[in-house]
C-alpha cells in the first residue's frame, strides 16, 4: 500500500546551517510513528517543513490520503496543508487565549465550513445550521477527548495537561488523516502521560487517523510506536521497531555519546 506521507530527500538550510539533511521518512496508514532524537536534532524543523511553515530548501513531500490520489505538498500555504488533512500540535502550547475552549475547537472546524462575510452578517438559515453543526461537532470532539467540563472556560484558564489535550482536540477538529504531535507529553506528570498514551491509541483505533509524534519520554515512545525514526544533527540515523532502536549502536551513541557501549 502507498504510504500516506512520503518525504524524500528533505533538506532545510538556514543560511550556513543545515537543520535537515536529506531526510526520507514514510508513514503508513493506521500507524503510530515516532520521531526521536537529541535536542536540536531538527525534529520540530521537520514538522515545520511538512506543514509548510518553513519552505524546505530541497525535497519532496507527498501525501496519499486514504482512498485518494497522491499529491505533492511542496509550496502550498500552511492552511492548505491543513485542509489536505495534516494537522499538528505545538511543542510550546499555542492555544488562542482570547477564546473559550469550545471556540478553540471551532477554529479547527474553520476550514471545513463555508460561511462568508455576507453569511455572517445576514445569517440565513443555511448559515445558522452550519454554525450549530460546528458547535455540535466541536462539543462531541471535546467529549471524546474528555474536556467537556471546560466547554465555556477561557482556554488560558485550563490546567496544563488539559491545555495539551485541547491542542489535540483542536487539531482533530480539522478532520485530519495524519496527526502530527510535537512533544505532547512535555511537562506532564506520570498520570497525565498515561492518559495521553491511552488517548493516542484510542485516536488511532477510533478516529481513523495515523499519528506521527515527536517525544522525549522514551517510555511513552517505546510503548506506543509501531515504527520509530531517529534523527541526529539533521540526519536520519535509524528506523525500526522499538526493540531494534533500543539496540541500535548509532542511536545509543547519539543519545549517550561514544563511551556508552558499556553503560
Amino acid at each position: 500500500m502507498e504510504p500516506i506521507l512520503n518525504v524524500k530527500n528533505l533538506t532545510m538550510k538556514f543560511g550556513g546551517l543545515t537543520a535537515l539533511d536529506s531526510i526520507d521518512i514514510s508513514i503508513k496508514q493506521g500507524e503510530i510513528a515516532a520521531l526521536i532524537g537529541p535536542n536540536g536534532a531538527g525534529k520540530t524543523t521537520f514538522f515545520n517543513c511538512i506543514t509548510s511553515i518553513y519552505e524546505p530548501t530541497e525535497g519532496n513531500i507527498q501525501i496519499t490520503p486514504p482512498g485518494q490520489p497522491t499529491e505533492s505538498l511542496n509550496g502550498l500555504k500552511p492552511n492548505i496543508v491543513t485542509e489536505k488533512g495534516l494537522a499538528r500540535t505545538f511543542q510550546n502550547i499555542r492555544l488562542f487565549h482570547g477564546m473559550t475552549v469550545l471556540e478553540n475547537v471551532m477554529i479547527g472546524r474553520h476550514c471545513r465550513l463555508n460561511s462568508g462575510i455576507l453569511g455572517a452578517m445576514l445569517q440565513p438559515k443555511s448559515q445558522q445550521r452550519e454554525e450549530q453543526k460546528a458547535v455540535d461537532d466541536s462539543y462531541k470532539i471535546l467529549e471524546k477527548i474528555g474536556l467537556d467540563q471546560y466547554v465555556n472556560e477561557m482556554a488560558i484558564n485550563l490546567p496544563y495537561g488539559a491545555q495539551r489535550r485541547l491542542e489535540i482536540a483542536r487539531a482533530l477538529a480539522t478532520d485530519p488523516f495524519l496527526l502530527l504531535l510535537d512533544e505532547p507529553a512535555a511537562g506532564m506528570n506520570p498520570q497525565e502521560t498515561k492518559e495521553l498514551d491511552d488517548l493516542i491509541i484510542w485516536l488511532r483505533d477510533n478516529e481513523n487517523v495515523s499519528i506521527l509524534l515527536i517525544e522525549h519520554d522514551m517510555k511513552l515512545v517505546m510503548s506506543l510506536s509501531d515504527n520509530i525514526h531517529v534523527v541526529d544533527y539533521g540526519k536520519k540515523i535509524a528506523e525500526g521497531t522499538a526493540d531494534e532502536i533500543k539496540n541500535n549502536p548509532l542511536v545509543i551513541k547519539a543519545y549517550l555519546g561514544d563511551d556508552a557501549e558499556d553503560a
Binding site: 491543513t82 505545538f90 488562542f96 477564546m99 474553520h110 476550514c111 480539522t174
Partner: peptide, 14 residues
C-alpha cells in the same frame, strides 16, 4: 481572533 492570538497556530489550523 485566532489571527490576533497566534498567527502561526491560526494558519496551522487551516
Amino acid at each position: 481572533i485566532a489571527l490576533r492570538d497566534d498567527e502561526i497556530a491560526c494558519q496551522a489550523m487551516g
